[in-house]
Design a binder for these strands. Structure first.
Lengths: 300, 300
DNA sequence: GAGTATTCTTAAGTGCAACTGACTGTTGGG
DNA sequence: CCCAACAGTCAGTTGCACTTAAGAATACTC
């Protein structure tokens, strides 16, 4: 009988690429991982790893084992979830990955509700970009991810993830307050000469924002670049830049900035994803329900 | 994470009814079984066994676990079976880097043969220039590269790569059809005043083509420059340029262009390279064999 | 090209966990 | 009532999984 613990190591190796990476992820020493995988190799009697430079690569035989390991782990997780949902008290730990503006806007209320209504559930929160958060949730580093999706920009598809829309979020052109600076375009077309602040290249937000400007007929002068939307706000409010910002960033604070509706009223989609196999875990179901309520609280 | 070994004990208990029976079946002492099941109970934090007379019965929670255990064991068994059968059939993934004209001329047939004869082998194909493709194959980004080499032009040497010639490919002077334009040189020497289309500077093809012109006694007027050989074809067929083109570009399409043999009948060499270490992998051996057949199909 | 950093491997040692065996307690059948 | 069958407990032993440490091969860097 194959040892699932060892198979899991093999699977993590496929995901992370190096024994050292597996060891770090699972809090082992690299040599422990090496020894366990050697043992697995002896168990099955087939070469599973081949050294390749200073790393190792999985042989086709190993790939076969890994593909089934995924299903084994899924089944085990489903078993745990069903067991938990057969009980009356809701308990356990839920690790949540959130992107910044959701962390600021939604999570405080959601955590407060969880604390008061499900004190037995421990919620851990990590701030992370949507793309890596989805991958890590799939890889079991998180149980639930709150991610965003910009119009016309499909998020990476993970068939094993159960995705559900949390809310949508209008994106508007934010311009400085009337008494600050010289940047007061009345529409996005008029903002062609303005200094822009956008997120770094490679993000979905940046891609969408540039496309929006091009559709409006100009190439934006991106003078400021930061992933921190709070910095965007400050740059706009201080009269230094204009920006395309989703409504959620204004939650919990007023603003002196002026917000202009864009043509076609573009909406950012905010959604949650969990692994299929854990989607029935009561603690996870609870977190999702609470998130829905928290969103209605802040967004009306 | 649930321990499959212990789940298995629980399942055997359901089947056999007594701890003693499980112990006998699995060659344990009864106390070992008892201890392991107590441990499982502690792991999941739910009562799994209840004494009933002098035996024990499974709680509903235990039944839930058992029902999933069956699937886990089934999956593990399937994994072992597939692993065993993979030792006789050829499986795995082969990542192939190909330059454009081979991708168009050879790969479609090769992929079709692979699909029908080795359905278990997944072939991934990326279009790439020979030079970077060789480097990346060496660096393990690809498993197999199809590259070209122009006469008198050594390809970069990678001692760790196993190189094998796939075919050779006559290079001819391609001139517009008789009814198009004014460019109808009868030989390369007569093409000294013609407008030329060549690949960009820095490519082996460009270097060889310029050398060929100089050997014929003139400096070519390179008016058009593109890496895309399909564009070369269009420029020639539309009467705008002449070009030095290998035969492979005409595969799968007729042409109205006129093709003239060059002096000394220069041949481009097309070869495959794989890392020494992987050269015996059955899937790679199969791809190479199929490429040979595909070449004979298209090139006669 | 030398030095440095990664990465995997192997060896030796350690601690925990799983197993055995003896014993106890409980139950049901004869 | 007594014995057989069974589960659970405890003490003791064994084995395995882990750690640290040293070593070799490879890749990066200045």
């Amino acid at each position: 009988m194959l040892d699932v613990r060892r198979l899991r190591l093999l699977r993590e190796l496929q995901l992370r690429g190096t024994l050292a990476g597996v060891a770090e992820a699972l809090n082992f020493s690299p040599s422990a991982v090496s020894q366990q995988l050697s043992q697995l190799e002896k168990d099955v009697g087939v070469e599973l790893l081949r050294s390749s430079g200073r790393r190792v690569v999985l042989t086709p035989a190993a790939e076969i084992l890994v593909s089934h390991t995924a299903e084994v782990l899924r089944t085990l997780e489903r078993a745990e979830a069903e067991l938990a949902s057969s009980l009356t008290t809701i308990t356990g730990t839920v690790r949540v990955a959130v992107f910044q503006s959701a962390a600021l806007a939604i999570m405080p209320d959601a955590l407060a509700i969880m604390e008061s209504e499900y004190p037995e559930v421990r919620v851990e929160m990590v701030q992370r970009e949507p793309e890596s958060a989805l991958r890590e949730t799939w890889a079991r580093d998180f149980d639930l991810v709150i991610a965003e999706q910009y119009p016309g920009h499909a998020a990476p598809r993970h068939p094993e993830l159960d995705r559900r829309t949390l809310t949508t979020d209008a994106i508007r052109l934010a311009t400085p307050p009337a008494d600050r600076g010289r940047l007061h375009p009345a529409s996005i077309e008029r903002a062609s000469d303005a200094a822009w602040v956008m997120e770094p290249r490679g993000t979905a937000s940046r891609h969408w924002a540039e496309q929006a400007c091009r559709r409006a007929g100009f190439e934006p002068d991106v003078r400021f670049e930061t992933a921190d939307l709070q910095s965007h706000i400050r740059l706009v409010e201080s009269g230094n830049a204009v920006a395309l910002l989703p409504d959620l960033v204004w939650i919990g604070r007023g603003t002196s900035a002026q917000l202009l509706l864009l043509p076609e009223n573009p909406q950012r989609t905010i959604f949650t994803s969990v692994r299929e196999a854990s989607s029935t875990r009561p603690a996870i179901v609870a977190v999702r329900a609470v998130l829905d309520r928290a969103v209605r609280l802040v967004a009306g």
